[in-house]
Design a protein around this nucleic acid. Structure first.
Lengths: 222, 222
DNA sequence: CTGGATCCGGGAAGATACTG
DNA sequence: CAGTATCTTCCCGGATCCAG
């Protein structure tokens, strides 16, 4: 990207991450962890392959990303965030909080990946039953989703892993999924709609609801 | 901006503010308050006039900015942030915190405006003498600068105003100014260098220093 | 003078085909 | 699978011009 030529922390930051697609690539690497090129492409529908290659090269020379050759299996290449790249999480979370009020139902041409919910869910979920034993609630599927792990009052949201044994799995159309976690769709309604398989109480445990996680959701609307 | 076409809070947010110059325009309006077209141009060196006009129009239709005709003096036009636009401050502050570690001394071609320090200073300053009477420290000049107002432990950073009576004025070359407030340049050294006019103790009162405001400054470097 | 609009060249982004 | 090559499109940047 062409530099703004301003001695200003914001402008200097945008010189590095202001390019198109760059922050979405960071989102993918934050959500998925070290990823292969093809995995990044799947999580970034709409990106041109040359653009992804170019961005990864630029981000590597900017110190946001490292490219690694894993010896096994068979010289696989993965891309991972450096600490400097991972430090963008705060900025991404603020942008997510700001963008969330515009999450009206998806339009027909919009793509969706359940693992995109990871960053929002970190702000939206909590443990409503700290005394209960540890549990995992999966959103989406094992191929593409998040595991919300609650344990004694603390929560962790990460990409779905085969080792986790979810007490409940929540899935459904994107608009309903978002509505559920922002408190616009009651859990009972989601259950009746067949969005929840497994223990509905586990879902009730983690859904923090809209006012706690995003108190400004309404007043920030235009 | 062309939409990413992703049903994701981050992507939707970037659809609105991901365009070049948009966040810097928000920076100006956050720092200066409602501003005239020419004032924005002065605070955005390097922007093409057509681009500023285009962005302001886009931001207006996105609900970030309102265009107002003041009746007096003589039908003056000003641009101001809506609450939705002002809600970007959190994201901007995170980006500033992230960009700050790259604030090496300015290169020759970089422009500088003292009022750009406003957002960083909100994170960097504090009242080290809550018991003392209210004071104002000016950074830069009246034409282009910030007033740091401390009063009983709380601080407020705003654009310089003629009504304020600063106890001290800090000014100098951009690199030194940044170094002073990030704790890399001792206050005594700044005073000896002639950067401070007025009460040096007032400056000492507000300079919070680097570790408090930006604890991650070093570890976040590449 | 302020607050833009118009025109144009260059370069970044987008789409697709192709390859080691 | 992990990109490169190529072509097109359109946004950005710079200069100039214009209306109130």
């Amino acid at each position: 990207m062409r530099s703004y030529g301003q001695y200003c922390a914001l402008a200097r930051g945008l010189d590095v991450v202001g390019d198109r697609w760059t922050l979405l690539i960071v989102r993918e690497l934050l959500s998925l962890g070290p990823s292969r090129y093809a995995d990044l492409q799947r999580g970034l529908p709409g990106i041109a392959t040359n653009l992804l290659a170019t961005r990864l090269r630029e981000m590597e020379s900017a110190g946001l990303v490292v490219r690694m050759q894993l010896p096994r299996p068979a010289n696989v290449v993965v891309f991972a965030l450096t600490p400097r790249g991972a430090a963008l999480e705060g900025a991404l979370r603020e942008l997510v909080k700001w963008g969330a009020p515009t999450m009206s139902p998806p339009s027909a041409h919009e793509e969706f990946r359940a693992h995109w919910l990871q960053l929002p869910l970190r702000g939206l979920c909590r443990d409503n039953a700290p005394g209960s034993p540890p549990q995992v609630v999966r959103v989406g599927s094992l191929d593409d989703g998040c595991d919300i792990a609650v344990d004694g009052g603390s929560i962790e949201v990460a990409a779905s892993t085969p080792t986790a044994e979810p007490a409940a799995v929540v899935d459904g159309d994107p608009g309903a999924l978002v509505a559920l976690f922002t408190g616009q769709l009651p859990i009972d309604a989601a259950a009746s709609a067949g969005m929840i398989s497994g223990d509905v109480e586990a879902v009730r445990r983690v859904v923090g609801g809209y006012p706690a996680g995003m108190p400004h959701l309404k007043e920030a609307l235009p």
